[in-house]
């Protein structure tokens, strides 16, 4: 059974009209309500202990999906199943446990820590509150968590500003771990760190995975990192999953033209100085996405059908999903 499964999850944000639009509307101009389809019928599953990488460009809906999976936002449509059950239908206690089981690690190591709390309280508050540990063991529990993520427990009484970026990232990880989650949603959790620190934190994530049998939804725009740690990779473009398969497949022989372009544009140390052959065109506005296949204005293989019909996400080989009309031709 999957640990987490998103079924046909959609998320719409209604942009409130700004003042100018309101005035124009009052004067009789046709002002249509701006709706962003941040997620459009997304299916995604994560098995216990599995690492799923989520890749996509800015605004493609990665964070939105991560926040829905972590329970920080509700989907507009579709459901998120935890161990096969819709979390909203569980009784209060089970629901709380289901939400605690999925913890998030955030991008900005500074803004995700409350600057007025000591590290001991940041890490220890929730487990103590939820009775994961008793008051008497709280101190040693915090020390244990700090040791687990590679922080010196002697620093427990310090405040977040007294730590370096990498240490703050570890504090955020310890806070998530302290409620004994089954899964971690890491939203660009290493993007704000320095190159030499990124490797340390990636190693920590991998160690925790084996030590605690954690599953991850690992959101990143860095294909190299995703390739390194993910079992399966989902590629998102403007709110839709365009390809979802084992990492070695998606990142070695991508099927979808967008995945191919992403991979071709990924900077690599190996290549040496060369002329870049970038994908043309802008990422379209999510307020007004192209009809049919969202990628068709930039796709080198676009056909007439692509601008009419949405390509469904279909299994093109066992465990390999892709959403492109090209797959119908063969």
């Amino acid at each position: 059974m999957n640990l987490i499964e998103a079924r046909r999850v959609s998320k719409r944000f209604v942009r409130k009209p700004d003042l100018a639009a309101k005035i124009a509307g009052m004067l009789g101009a046709p002002v249509k309500q701006a709706v962003v389809h941040a997620l459009d019928h997304v299916d995604l599953s994560v098995a216990p202990g599995e690492v799923v990488g989520l890749v996509g460009e800015s605004g493609s809906g990665k964070s939105t999906l991560g926040r829905i999976v972590a329970g920080l936002q509700d989907a507009s449509d579709g459901e998120v199943m935890f161990e096969g059950k819709d979390r909203r239908t569980l009784d209060a206690d089970a629901r709380k446990r289901a939400y605690l089981a999925v913890q998030m690690v955030f991008q900005d190591p500074m803004s995700s820590l409350n600057p007025r709390l000591r590290i001991a309280d940041i890490i220890g508050e929730a487990p103590l509150f939820h009775g994961v540990v008793g008051r008497a063991e709280a101190r040693s529990y915090v020390s244990e968590m700090m040791n687990t993520v590679g922080l010196n427990p002697a620093y427990a009484e310090r405040y977040p500003h007294q730590f370096s970026g990498g240490q703050r990232a570890r504090i955020g990880i310890a806070r998530a771990l302290a409620v004994k989650p089954r899964m971690i949603v890491a939203d660009e959790a290493i993007a704000a760190l320095d190159a030499s620190i990124q490797a340390q934190v990636i190693n920590l994530f991998m160690k925790l995975r084996t030590d605690f049998d954690l599953a991850y939804l690992f959101i990143s725009h860095d294909l190299g990192v995703v390739q390194h740690i993910a079992d399966r990779v989902a590629i998102l473009y403007l709110g839709r999953v365009v390809e979802f398969a084992a990492a070695e497949k998606v990142l070695a022989t991508p099927n979808h033209p967008y995945s191919q372009a992403l991979l071709a544009n990924m900077p690599r140390v190996e290549t040496g100085k060369h002329a870049f052959a970038p994908l043309e065109g802008e990422i379209p506005s999510p307020l007004d996405p192209p009809r049919g296949c969202h990628f068709h204005p930039r796709c080198p293989h676009a056909m007439p059908r692509c601008s009419e019909e949405v390509p469904p996400l279909k299994e093109i080989a066992p465990g390999w999903m892709s959403a492109c009309h090209l797959n119908d031709r063969a």
Binding site: Y99, S111, N114, E125, R175
Partner: peptide
């Protein structure tokens, strides 16, 4: 808007 508030919500406080 800061992420520590999200984190606190995520911890079901």
């Amino acid at each position: 808007q800061r992420e520590y508030i999200d984190a606190a919500r995520n911890l079901a406080l």
